[in-house]
Structures are given as structure tokens and as C-alpha cells.
């Protein structure tokens, strides 16, 4: 339980820090290279190239050696740059907003794990489900498929029932907290779809799990309030 608390809080802090950093990078990039109006990028890879751009252009300084001259033309240029930077920061904020939705999605579909031959929820499993709960509450159109899985020990057939019981106990966690049962579809694959191929303890602990798939309402996830 304790070990999971920081991770469950992290998503609310990290976006803020990233937002500040991201805007700063974009603003500095734009103010130094105002001529080449940067196209708002959405991929993190493109953002990374944009941030390295100033370093490369700095080695080849522009022809006007004179320092900043306070002419009307220069003022207009600065104003344009400022507006451009503002637009870019808005675009970046939008991008980060969508990234937050992606992070919400990641928390929602994060796999949870079980003990051997058990469908009861462990503390860490409970904490991971707790993190999904506000997202389910804030997005009433959201429907999830819960897939129960087992490790390879035991009977292949009996394991299918165990996987179903794991999916059902995940569903019960949510329905006990007021989320409607109709928002979940339960399915079991028993031991048939292992996440890890080995038969050692590390692989087995990865295979005793419930996975989540968004069936509906996964677009534009609202953050928990």
C-alpha cells in the first residue's frame, strides 16, 4: 500500500512540471529563431528536435553583428515573435493536455496482479484499482473489458475458471464503490495467453494478472476532480 502511494500521486505533479518546462523550451526556441515559424508539433520526438535547434544555430550567428537595435521593424519583429510564442505555448499546453489524457488512459489500463491460485485482491492490486476508480467515476461513458489470466501451473481447464474469478473480483472492487456492473465485460483466458513465457517465479508473477481494455468512452478522458 505504502509503496504505491507515491506513484498514484505522481501523475498529478508531473504534468505541471512538464508544462512549465515545455513552454520554456518552446519560448526560448522561438525567440532565437523567429524567421522560421515553427509548426506546432505534437510528437515528443519533434519537440526534442526543436529544443536542440538553438544550440546548432548558435554556432552560425546571423549576419547582422550589431546587438539588438530598438527600431520599429525590430519591435514589430519582436511582437510577432511574442505572439508566435504565445500561440506555440497554447499548442504545447493542448499537447500536454492530451498527454495527460494518455496518462489517464495508462493508469486505467494498467495491469494488476494476483497471488498464486488466488482471486482475492492484494494491497498493491487494490491500490492500482484505486487509481482507476476516479477515472471511471469522472468518465461515465467509459466501458472496460477485464481479462483474467493465470500462470501455467495447475489444470488448464480449472485455470480458466480462476481467470474468470480474478476478472470478477476486479469488477466487484468497482461495483462495491458504486460503479455499475454493466460497465464491465469479463473474460478469462486462463493460462492460454501468458505475458511472460518463462516458468520461473518472476514470469509466473507477471502472468497471474488482470488486463484492461477500453471498450467505449476512451476518447477525451477527463481527469479526476
Amino acid at each position: 500500500m505504502n509503496s504505491m502511494l507515491p506513484t498514484s500521486k505522481r501523475p498529478t505533479r508531473r504534468p505541471l512540471a512538464a508544462l512549465v518546462l515545455g513552454v520554456a523550451v518552446l519560448v526560448s526556441a522561438c525567440s532565437k529563431k523567429p524567421e522560421t515559424a515553427p509548426v506546432p508539433e505534437t510528437s515528443p520526438a519533434a519537440a526534442a528536435t526543436a529544443s536542440t535547434a538553438p544550440a546548432t544555430t548558435a554556432t552560425t550567428p546571423a549576419t547582422p553583428i550589431a546587438p539588438v537595435v530598438d527600431t520599429a521593424a525590430e519591435r514589430a519583429r519582436r511582437e510577432a515573435a511574442r505572439l508566435k510564442a504565445r500561440e506555440d505555448s497554447i499548442a504545447a499546453a493542448r499537447m500536454l493536455a492530451s498527454k495527460t489524457a494518455a496518462e489517464l488512459k495508462a493508469a486505467l489500463v494498467a495491469t494488476v496482479y494476483f497471488d498464486y491460485d488466488r482471486a482475492e485482491l492484494r494491497d498493491d492490486t487494490r491500490a492500482a484499482l484505486e487509481a482507476k476508480l476516479p477515472i471511471l467515476r469522472a468518465n461515465s461513458a467509459l466501458r472496460l473489458r477485464v481479462q483474467g489470466h493465470t500462470d501455467e501451473r495447475g489444470s488448464d481447464e480449472y485455470n480458466l475458471a480462476l481467470g474468470q474469478r480474478r476478472a470478477a473480483s476486479v469488477q466487484r472492487f468497482f461495483t462495491d464503490r458504486g460503479v455499475e456492473a454493466g460497465r464491465f465485460a469479463l473474460v478469462s483466458f486462463g493460462r492460454e495467453k501468458p505475458a511472460s513465457a518463462g516458468d520461473d517465479d518472476a514470469s509466473r508473477s507477471k502472468n497471474r494478472r488482470a488486463e484492461f481494455e477500453i471498450l467505449a468512452g476512451g476518447e477525451g478522458l477527463a481527469g479526476p476532480r
Binding site: 481447464e157 480458466l160 475458471a161 474468470q164 470478477a168 469488477q171 469479463l186 473474460v187
Partner: peptide, 22 residues
């Protein structure tokens, strides 16, 4: 839900199987 492990009755008219929901 879960519908697994079928077995025919001797006359072949019915199937006994395991069914699980929640």
C-alpha cells in the same frame, strides 16, 4: 461469460459444461 469444459450426456442430446459470470 465463461462457458468451458463441455461433456455430452450419453444420449448426445445435452451438454454439461462449466459456466461462470461474476
Amino acid at each position: 461469460g465463461l462457458n468451458i469444459t463441455p461433456a455430452f450426456t450419453p444420449d448426445g442430446s445435452a451438454i454439461v459444461y462449466a459456466h461462470g459470470l461474476d
